[in-house]
């Protein structure tokens, strides 16, 4: 079965909570983003996948400076993570349900607004997703056969951001998932050319199997977390990327350099470039672009 769909959606935690001091305009912008995310969910449902391959840059939950691979594939049976705020709030906004543990009362990984939710302190994680292990292993072997020396991990810890996008797009966890981790913010980054080729190899493999797979690329767009540029957004770069994808020229992304990505605050575009490689030069439908004070949020799907 060929790839049944592909979407790109932000994973910014500020889609799920707003700090008390934020303005009404900011809250309206956040709501605009949530609406776009729910519109993307309709596209996911329309594509009717049985498996979602989530391509996401790990935020130091699975990997750290002991080893930080450019790409890695999860090959375990169950992936799980904590949300970015309390599960009741997440359920209210996204409809995502969660696993309750006996004797556990507090599921909030950190007070809202304090970015500790990427910490990996708690083993009893509320968001649990069955993995398509057979297909993950098949993909691992297929990538190696095609010249991609893909690292693998049996640790399926999902950081709060990866959970967030999955909360919106697979709220009932009724679709199996596969996880491909990338390096989107720890330079040196993988080259876009290689990322695009990886996507093409992923597509070849998916075209050979019976599973109905949808690719979900998380992240983006321009933002500079943890740097003196936080609050600056390269909107011109973002819009150029969206125009390129909307006009069916995704292969142009392979011509970018890692410096192009980093200097525009777009390291996470790695996830989108892999997806563009899997989809080929077909037009994207851009549902929305929302500029928050610290990030540009792009919501789109490929018209396969």
């Amino acid at each position: 079965m060929p790839l049944v769909g592909a979407v790109a959606a932000p994973h910014s935690h500020l889609q799920l909570f707003t700090r008390p001091a934020e303005s009404e305009q900011y809250k309206q912008d956040v709501q605009k983003g949530r609406n776009a995310m729910l519109a993307l969910r309709e596209q996911v449902e329309r594509a009717n996948p049985d498996t979602i391959l989530v391509i996401h840059d790990d935020h130091f939950v699975n990997f750290d400076f002991r080893c930080y691979p450019p790409f890695a594939l999860f090959i375990g049976h169950e992936a799980k993570g904590s949300g970015v705020t309390d599960p009741d709030t997440i359920e209210k906004i996204t409809g995502a349900t969660y696993r309750k543990y006996e004797g556990k009362e507090n599921y909030q990984s950190a007070p809202s607004g304090i970015p500790q939710h990427m910490a990996n302190w708690d083993n009893q994680k509320p968001y649990v997703y069955p993995a398509n292990t057979d297909l993950s292993v098949h993909m691992l072997k297929g990538l190696l056969a095609r010249g991609f020396d893909m690292p693998f991990t049996s640790d399926g810890s999902m950081d709060g951001e990866e959970v967030l996008t999955t909360n919106f797009l697979n709220p009932k966890a009724d679709k199996k998932i596969m996880l491909m981790f990338t390096n989107g913010y720890v330079p040196p980054l993988p080259w876009p050319k290689r990322s695009y080729e990886l996507g093409r190899a992923v597509r070849e493999i998916l075209d050979e199997v019976e599973d109905r797979v949808l690719i979900l690329a998380t992240g983006g767009m321009s933002h500079y977390p943890g740097t003196p540029l936080y609050g600056h957004v390269d909107e011109a770069f973002d819009k150029k990327i969206l125009d390129t994808l909307a006009s069916g020229k995704g292969s142009d992304l392979a011509k970018l350099s890692p410096d192009d990505l980093m200097n525009s605050g777009n390291g996470e575009l790695v996830n989108w470039v892999i997806t563009a490689g899997a989809c080929g030069d077909v037009p994207c439908r851009v549902l929305d672009y929302v500029r928050l004070w610290h990030i540009g949020l792009g919501y789109l799907y490929w018209e396969l």
Binding site: F60, A110, I114, P115, M118, A119, V186, Y224, P225, G226
Partner: peptide, 9 residues
Amino acid sequence: PFLLVRFAG
């Protein structure tokens, strides 16, 4: 920078 954010938090 990611770890700086985490450390600050």
